[in-house]
Design a binder for these strands. Sequence first.
DNA 1: CTGAAAGCGCTTACAG
DNA 2: CTGAAAGCGCTTACAG
Lengths: 338, 338
Amino acid sequence: MKRASIKDIARLANVSHSTVSRALSRNPSISANTAERIRRIAQESGYRASAAARSLVTRRTGTIGVVVTTITDPFAAEVVRGIEDAANENDYCVLLANSNADPEREMKVVRTLEERRVEGIVVTSSRLGSLYATALSETQVPIVLLNNQHASAFLHSVMIANVDASREATRHLVGFGHRRIAYIGDRYGCQSDSERFSGYRAALEEAGIPFRPQYAVQGDGKAEGGHAAMTTLLRLEESPSAVFCYNDMTALGALRSTREHGLRVPEDVSFVGFDDLFISQYTDPPLTTMRQPMHDMGRKAVETLLTLFKGSASEHCIQVRGELVVRESTAIFKEEKN
Amino acid sequence: MKRASIKDIARLANVSHSTVSRALSRNPSISANTAERIRRIAQESGYRASAAARSLVTRRTGTIGVVVTTITDPFAAEVVRGIEDAANENDYCVLLANSNADPEREMKVVRTLEERRVEGIVVTSSRLGSLYATALSETQVPIVLLNNQHASAFLHSVMIANVDASREATRHLVGFGHRRIAYIGDRYGCQSDSERFSGYRAALEEAGIPFRPQYAVQGDGKAEGGHAAMTTLLRLEESPSAVFCYNDMTALGALRSTREHGLRVPEDVSFVGFDDLFISQYTDPPLTTMRQPMHDMGRKAVETLLTLFKGSASEHCIQVRGELVVRESTAIFKEEKN
DNA sequence: CTGAAAGCGCTTACAG
DNA sequence: CTGAAAGCGCTTACAG
């Protein structure tokens, strides 16, 4: 059975469909009585206005598109939650798409979102920031990149202040007396990896600790890579007493490798992660980590979209600060414990 | 600047807009040459067909709505991933909405989805299954409930076979020689909690182990609740040697409480969870758990939607089996270890 | 192979 | 306060 249209309601109410439209959108020009009557009839017949028809004339869809590599990534999920919250508060819906970190698919997905006339798009953790700069300059819908992996001055973005945050995270280790401090990076992390690496180097430098190349190893941003990287570090003649990890997932894997080697955390080796995923408070021991305000970053992304919709200018790159959350995976360095 | 419409392309190509429409939809009646030319022009001018206009006439939007309590829940995220994958393979988009487990909001959200003319809706872990039965019987769009908390025979659903799965999980503990086996439930879990509790009871019964009421405690489905519940259990005169948890998050909290009491897992107490969240392989020790095929459940949900779209009949309740994943949080019972 | 016309379900000036 | 008309951007019979 067909859905009731505005005309059906009009017939039922013995008025023109224009009147129905006005009554339903609470246009004050309609008399209270008829308006009331029309609304009741609409209600009873389970009428639902067609958003498609409406948006065709109003030129507004009230939806924003979100592309993530995969919603299964806890970071992405938290960000999307922030986006949803902010979107809903402003009566926007969210069209979700995943790119699987595949540039081709990512472009295709953006295309689809354009056809659906999303009013704005937020893309998280994209690896093709630079591709976007050109490909998307033709796009007519505002895009904001969240923690994108490549700088692209032309686009709007919200980013964590990687260098500062990483420097602070590493300083925490330095402050605990550690000098053999390693870094487990993300070989796919592009700009954010190199920035976090810079922050790490900066902290070493200001503490007068020489950088040892063998202490900089690469993971893959996931637990598997962190595990493998940590295993490498543990095989070193002089293994590190502390490790700063690209992110919490990496730390998770590294923690496990450490445990498998019969070492204790933090007594034998200290760890600090990056992100503060929900689970990081439940690892054993609970993880000290540099928190990214994921929820807030999601909000900020839609807020810049919103100001862009109004035609106002918006900051091009919003930088957000991390916050060190000290838990139990870091301890004061003690010489030769094992 | 306005988006190019089909008419703009028609003007550029010196044909009627009907011809443009046909060329773009690869209607074979159009001559290869003109079709080619039209497509090139459309491409160059960055033309994007308006999905709204199209769906107004085709009566198809190619989108399905998904409502979750919060995407931040790892279970929901995995399910949504499965939904997305299946949807994309069939050229559907996903409109995501969160209900915050608030019935009122959930109904509102469904309303919004209807206005957007989603062709189907999947609702995960809803607590108002029974409300749906009436409220949604008026709805014209097919809805499938995934692990809904209340039975409702009128609706389509995909569910884990809770009783069987829980019985098997508990049997695993029994098989390891445990007799003091506790259950930490979810006070908000409604039907799924009572079903999992039944499975637990059934396993005890078939093993001739008397049920002890003080061994059945309630959490809240989250780590906090699991922590509190386990603390209660540990204060018992004769505390359990094994615990079956409503879900992995509960187990996570329980694990932590156990650790805080200076007890070892699995030497002092064994744990089995439910879900097999991604993180469960990274807990310390890695968690033995009853895996729910979350990804597959998501797929199945859209598959039943798809068959419903075709007008075919579909099974009303698809039951899916859990799979016990044995890791290191369970061990053979040994008398009086501490 | 191509075009003119009608219509999908709304909103919104324009009249009255 | 209400209605008739036009139009948003498409698709699709119907002609030719």
